[in-house]
Design a protein around this nucleic acid. Structure first.
Lengths: 334, 334
DNA sequence: TAGAAGTATGGGAACGTTCCCTTGAGATAG
DNA sequence: CTATCTCAAGGGAACGTTCCCATACTTCTA
């Protein structure tokens, strides 16, 4: 274990109070003694005992990051962002798997919580365990008015893609959505699709929407099959997730349709594999790393009781590759 | 904050010692009082204050997981495994980004450390901060004799692939390795390649080895170009990583070679995208989830001062898809 | 029936830190 | 020269828990 404040005191021949003052920055200590103490602390690699600090209610610079699935690659990127800002602001991170575990760990003295895509059930609580809390959510909604939150802006992303498809001349745009109970984000994307249709001036046609059951390639395949076998099939399919888009590719291949010449396909997520699909998939990328950094910045301000600042929003980006055909140009060229 | 032992004491009218005894399991307390105390604790959702425990040197059930890159998908899976076992054995996890941060957080009272693919520089230290430590390493080596470690067994995985290629009739097998300073694991894979060559009875030919500079698709492309443009090119290329294999695909395509008919390509990692490559990539999968569980089990035993048990090793697995051509069968059929 | 043995409970100290109050010494002013 | 002020430094309490020892009471044994 590390050396304690009391040991430094006896080593330097001053009292623990004086050591504390010297260590905790410019209080009332003479310059000589400060030097002496700081020197001794440095030499013995003194590190304050966080646990003791907690007990007396002092600051800990500990922040909990809540995520129910550590295996999620998006979380991994998010965490990397959080971790970066945390390091810059001398905070320490504590990853927590569930609300139950968070409760068990609160005595460690965390000063705040960052929550990654929590269950919809928790959206209503503005903070966890009475601690300042920043939540990453899939899409803003009135429910979240109370607390601090940062949004993946799925609806915006969906609109981005829809507008792009429209610009490329597509008018019949299919959509594969995912019916996952309790996950508001996905319905939000569906909403994004519908809103975009409206703003573009296209009519909503339920025939153009397939409902996938699982987050699997197979579900995308089935959805695409349903959409493409109609008498008047769409010219483009916007799949809710890249993994579903991969399934669409397989369906297209099986039906003898070329991507993108015969059918345009695009996804959402920009997974690592998406650029390796043939043709490389046009998709939407969410900058989770930046979202993580921003979330931590927001939390730090909140902990410091600073008023929230309105910064430029962090928006999903359109990643244009080769899976969407420019119908407009093709028609012009004809 | 949660209710304290002292508050329960005054609530139930007994002393804090008695409350502590009742709470800490069957010590010397009368059944009546135990009931009374447990009831009160339950009702008020008592949670022991870990920080106070640390201070008096009692158990904390806290374990640190050390990883320098939280964005690593392999780590994400590993962490999921660790987390599962931790939950089952009522341990709590604390993810730590660097050795420096670990040092800062030791006062939280962690009882052990699990380290994910740390720098080679740390391999020599059997434990961090004097705590029981289990390390995930890429490959066993004499260096690690002192401490507890669990191995990804890269060398075994490389051997697995080489034997498979040999069985499929390949005799000129190229290899793309990665020159990363300080990363022993990669040299280990290279060693695995050479060992496998020897055990199979093939001669080592430096002409068949390309050294990639970065962990990038581009590097794989360059490596494959070098190997395939020789006058006597290999019939198969074993790339050090799936991402390099993806680059090999591009090189093959550019040279007008069909995969796998003209050139077999295989990788290592079994990344999510590997099954989406055309043709789907034959590769090696490391069960990081299981490795994480095992690592935590080992650590728990070590913390409990139990002797280590020798269990079945967790081995990488060959994932056969369609990127390796069976030359032997083709020749027979001819 | 006295003393020993055993059992239930209470009380104090300790862990390392921070906060608050006190002490003492030197400087300044009247 | 004394009273007041300033400033450096020391000392004690508190946080919540655990551990150890003390105390009171019961039960057993000779």
């Amino acid at each position: 274990m590390s050396i304690t404040i009391l040991e430094i005191a006896s080593l330097t021949g001053v009292s623990k109070s004086t050591v504390h003052r010297a260590l905790s920055g410019s209080d009332r200590v003479s310059e000589d003694i400060r030097r002496l103490v700081l020197d001794c602390a440095e030499r013995h690699q003194y590190r304050p005992n966080i646990s003791a600090r907690v007990l007396v209610g002092a600051r800990t610079y500990l922040v909990a990051v809540l995520c129910s699935d550590f295996g999620n690659i998006h979380f991994a990127h998010f965490l990397r962002g959080v971790s970066k800002t945390a390091r810059d602001s001398r905070y320490h991170l504590l990853t927590v798997n569930s609300l139950e575990e968070l409760k068990n760990l609160t005595p460690l003295g965390m000063e705040g919580v960052i929550s990654f895509y929590g269950d919809a059930a928790y959206h209503n609580e503005p903070q966890f365990e009475g601690l300042p809390t920043v939540k990453l959510i899939k899409e803003e909604s009135p429910v979240c008015e109370g607390g601090d939150y940062i949004s993946g802006r799925l609806s915006y992303g969906a609109g981005l893609m829809m507008r792009y498809l429209f610009e490329q001349g597509h008018r019949r745009i299919g959509h594969i959505t995912l019916d996952q109970p309790g996950d508001r984000g996905i319905n939000m994307k569906f909403t994004g699709y519908r809103n975009a249709l409206r703003s573009i001036g296209l009519e909503y046609d339920p025939e153009l929407v397939a409902h996938a059951e699982f987050y699997l390639e197979e579900s995308g395949y089935e959805g695409a099959m349903k959409l493409l076998r109609q008498k008047n099939p769409p010219t483009a399919i916007f799949a809710l997730a890249d993994i579903l888009a991969a399934g669409c590719y397989r369906a297209a291949q099986e039906l003898g349709l070329r991507v993108p010449e015969d059918i345009s396909i695009c996804g959402y997520d920009d997974k690592e594999y998406s650029s390796f699909l043939r043709p490389p998939l046009t998709t939407i990328s969410t900058p989770y790393n930046e979202l993580g950094q921003r979330a931590m910045e927001m939390l730090v301000r909140r902990i410091d009781k600073l008023p929230p600042v309105t910064e430029e929003p962090i928006l999903p980006e359109l990643v244009i590759r080769n899976s969407v055909y420019n119908i407009a140009a093709a028609n012009n060229g004809r």
